[in-house]
Design a protein around this nucleic acid. Structure first.
Lengths: 349, 349
DNA sequence: TCACTATATGAGAGCGCTCACAATTTGCCG
DNA sequence: CGGCAAATTGTGAGCGCTCTCATATAGTGA
């Protein structure tokens, strides 16, 4: 353990017998450095244990090596406060941190209000203070054009996770409608004819796309309107319990439920139990899962597995590429998977 | 939305008709500024939408306004990768982010290897690069004196969450032994006479303290040695399943299990199910919970509720106070709670 | 061999802030 | 009202880097 507190680029330059600027070129992998010199400098860096000071790099007009990852404030805090896990956040950090680390970047995670006015205030505050090299927007912020415009205006690269085909940006997404459609088809094939979709929130584009996928399959299969019931669960356990409760109490109760997230799927299991319905014999349940944590549920949930971590990682990768001047923009669709576990079966009746 | 990209302290100074330094005094809440001047400057700040550049502040020799929160690398990544939630991490972020935000600080979350050599390398790398104003160490890093020494050597304030009474530091903790003891006493009172404790890892001081609390209560109650079985679950679901499986298959199977974390408690429920044992009638289960997420389990788990978010928040608070020169060091014990839900009952036989 | 480019290195300035100190104003006492 | 201390403001320097641009060296063809 070296006792020296602050080793600067100057120390390295001196040790290697070159100038500041040459060391800078080496650590930035710049061109125009002779191999021999490069090695000499690298040796000095290793020997002194030199690590560039991020703030100084930023001040020098260079990059900040910071990626700002933004998530929905209320929902995230609500989840944490209520002591619910935040699987989406977990997977987000997983994908984001590991990818950033790979490139010598740091991930800073931030919560931003959905309300546009405060959202803008909070975002501009944090980017002015941190000056990140890129910002990663998740649902529902990815749908907020004002935030995107703010970043464009400050010329900070922006990646949108969960946004489809918006021009000239980094967009990473999965086929939400297709996933919902596949789940719906699977239930129809099993023989179900009374389905319910517990929707998250119309505020989320992804949620809207799933409802749409659900509806389209039923329509295409020539099912009557009442085959597909849409419940409003707001992504929340208690709200979902209420709605599912009503649905299961009705005369023509659904025999299968698709839930927009894990929590509402658990709500379905819970409510089924209270109604004395066994899963999957009397009620099938499919979830959109943020994490395979659901595999520990009893019984293990059949679910659409979302590539959350992968999407975030890809977004970070493209953001960093862009910060390097490589133009990483484009549309990147990642594959989902319908994982059949133990909560789906043909209907009983 | 202002179009101006970079508003600096100089712009504010000019707008307010004062010097750079006076503005600096105002934003740092420094003394010796006339009320009238302060207001004039504040008005200019608000009007221009000025936000200090963090990197520049750091460069000026001031603070970085960054708190580094460190967690166990392998375990965290394992959890995420396996798709398990990371309730501890969630609560950590919850407590840390909200507290930091309150004081205008940013929280940077990092994973560090437990292996001391790589741990030191990684930590010194990240502090050299980020220059945080404080570092928050969680189990098992909080027990690693070498990391603490490294930080002391660099004179970076350090808070240890889950560490008891180490001199001259910020230590935040709960009474782990006491909590385990209370859970054990509760089971004895219910009439259980064959208990098992599924331990996490001896690498974790907290885990050791709980085992100790468990043992002491049994000893004090004059129970024979075999009353208290210790299983090695390594905080992991699959490992716990294995061990509990063996225990439940034995002739004198335990009638009650205390698990060192939620995941292993779920493992207990799972395994009980496989053995055809109903909970709580034939097996009682108590968990050390990282989050009340367990309340959604079926049946809802009786658990020791840890003040994770609060401990982290307190640690951040004291770290920031120390960074301000206020000496925040000391020992801070936060209260746990035994929450009796539906997985505990008197033994059947 | 000598221009004339490419390639490699170095020097100076400046990013936006906070230090330490100097300069100025104010308050208060005899 | 002079004079000294305290309160208030301003100035210069420098943090550690990366810009831009100038200089030095190497490489090429006629």
């Amino acid at each position: 353990m070296t006792r020296q507190a602050n080793i600067t680029i100057e120390d390295v330059a001196e040790a290697a017998g070159v100038s500041r600027q040459t060391v800078s070129r080496v650590i930035n992998n710049g061109p125009n450095v002779k191999q021999a010199v490069r090695e000499k400098v690298e040796a000095a860096i290793a020997q002194l244990g030199y690590v560039p000071n991020l703030s100084a790099r930023r001040m020098g007009g260079g990059k900040s090596y910071l990626i700002l990852a933004v998530n929905d404030r209320q929902r995230t805090l609500d989840n944490w406060q209520a002591g619910r896990g935040n699987d989406w956040v977990d997977q987000m950090l997983y994908g984001g941190m590991t990818e950033c680390e790979k490139h010598g970047y740091h991930l800073v995670f931030r919560l931003i209000d959905t309300d546009t006015e405060s959202g803008i205030a909070q975002l501009s505050q944090v980017i002015a203070s941190l000056r990140p090299d890129g910002v990663l927007l998740t649902p529902p912020h990815c749908d907020n054009e004002e935030l995107v415009a703010l970043l464009a205006n400050r010329s900070i690269p922006c990646a949108r996770v969960g946004q489809h085909d918006s021009a000239d940006q980094i967009n990473v997404f999965m086929d939400e409608a297709g996933a919902a459609a596949e789940a719906t088809r699977y239930l129809l094939e099993l023989g179900h004819r009374r389905l319910a979709f517990v929707a998250g929130s119309p505020e989320y584009g992804n949620s809207r796309r799933r409802v749409q996928g659900f509806r389209e399959v039923l329509a295409k299969a020539g099912q009557p309107e009442e085959t597909g019931l849409i419940l409003d669960g707001d992504f929340r356990f208690d709200r979902a319990v209420e709605e599912i409760d009503k649905a299961l109490a009705s005369e023509n109760r659904p025999t299968a439920i698709i839930a927009d997230n894990d929590e509402m799927a658990f709500a379905a299991l819970h409510t089924a139990d209270r109604h004395g319905l066994s899963v999957p014999e009397q009620l099938s349940v499919i979830s959109f899962e943020d994490t395979p944590g659901v595999r520990f549920s009893v019984p293990p949930l059949t679910a659409i597995k979302q590539p959350t971590a992968q999407m975030i990682a890809r977004a970070c990768e493209k953001l960093i590429a862009t910060a390097r001047g490589e133009n990483g923009s484009g549309n990147f669709e990642l594959p989902y998977e319908l994982v059949k576990r133990a909560t789906t079966a043909p209907p009983d009746d």
